[in-house]
Write a protein that binds this DNA or RNA. Sequence first.
DNA 1: CGGAAAAGGTAATATTATAACATTCAATGC
DNA 2: GCATTGAATGTTATAATATTACCTTTTCCG
Lengths: 163, 163
Amino acid sequence: MSASALPYRTHNHSACIRQALADARTLCRANNARLTPTREQVLELIWRSHKALGAYDLLAMLAEEGHRAAPPTVYRALDFLQRQGLVHRITSLNAFLGCTHAGEQHCGQFLICRNCRNVLELTAPEVALAVGQASADEAFVAEDTVVEVIGLCPACQLSGNHD
Amino acid sequence: MSASALPYRTHNHSACIRQALADARTLCRANNARLTPTREQVLELIWRSHKALGAYDLLAMLAEEGHRAAPPTVYRALDFLQRQGLVHRITSLNAFLGCTHAGEQHCGQFLICRNCRNVLELTAPEVALAVGQASADEAFVAEDTVVEVIGLCPACQLSGNHD
DNA sequence: CGGAAAAGGTAATATTATAACATTCAATGC
DNA sequence: GCATTGAATGTTATAATATTACCTTTTCCG
Ligand SMILES: [Zn+2]
Ligand SMILES: [Zn+2]
Ligand SMILES: [Zn+2]
Ligand SMILES: [Zn+2]
C-alpha cells in the first residue's frame, strides 16, 4: 500500500459524496426501494465526512437544514439505509457511517481513529476467513460479524495531537 | 474439537463461579487492586450464567439480594472489573460478561448465540493476526479490537426454538 | 491519630433508541 | 380520474443505557 486510504488524506470529498449518492440511487432503483428525499438527505449528511455520526448528530444537522424532524425519522431513515447496504452501524460508537462498498456482497471491518474519528472500512477476506474458521471450530453458525478496531490512523500518528 | 465448549452444554456451573471468583481474588491481590464486597458481588452475579448481562439487569439482581444500589454503583464496579481484565463489555449487546481468560494477556473474540444468548469467548490467534495484518496494511495502529459474532450456538442449532 | 486517596451513596441528567398512534403520500387497479 | 391500500412520515411519549456532580464513608499510610 503506497498511498493512504481516502479518509486519511485530503481529497475531493465532493466527489465522494456525489459518487455515494449516485450509487445509492442506482442501487435503490435496482432493488425497487424508494430513496425518498428524507432518506437521501440523511445519506447525504452521513457522507459529509468519513466520520461516523450519531443519530442525534444527524438530527441536529437536519434541523440546521430546516428539516425539523424527531428521532424516529432519523432512525427509520437509517434502518432503511442499513437494509439497502448503504450505511453501517458502528456499534462501539453508537454511530453510523456511509458504506464504501455499497452493492458488493461484503462484511466490513472498521478502523476507527480515536483521535480524528475518521473510519476506514475494509473488506479483508483473511479477516472474514479467520473469523469464519474460528466460529466453525466451535460448531457455531455465524450470521453476522462485527469487527471494529480502535486506534490511530496514519495521519494522526504523525501530527501528534494525542497521547 | 470433539466436545462442545462450556456454555453450550450442561456442566457444574458452581465450579465455574467458584473458579472465577478464586482467580479474581488471586489476580487482584497480585495487582494490589481491591476486590471489595460490592465488586465481588457484581462479579459473582455476572458469573451466574454464561450470558452477557446488562448493567440494569445486574442492578435488579443486586436489589433482589438486598443491595439497593443506583446505576453508578454498578457501572463503577464494572469499570473496575474491566480494568482488572475480569469482565468484558459486549458492545453489540450493551452487556457484560465474565472473562474466561482472566490473567492471560489476550484480546477476545465473542460468539454470541442470538437464541439462548450464551456467549463463548475465544482467543484465536489467527483472528488477532488477520486483524493486525489488515490494520498494518493501512498503516493503522490498532490499540483495541472488537470482534463479535452473532449466530447460533451448536445447542440451539439442534433444538430448533429459533428463526 | 490525622491527612489523603479510594470507594461508595445519592440525585439529577445526558444519550441512545423505540413504541404507539395519527396522518400523508404514492403506486395500483378499476 | 379516483378509490383502495400499503408504505412512509409526523408526533408524542417513553424506554434503556450511561454519566455527572457532589457528598459521605472507608481504607491506607505515615
Ligand atoms: Zn460496507
Ligand atoms: Zn486520525
Ligand atoms: Zn477475556
Ligand atoms: Zn444458543
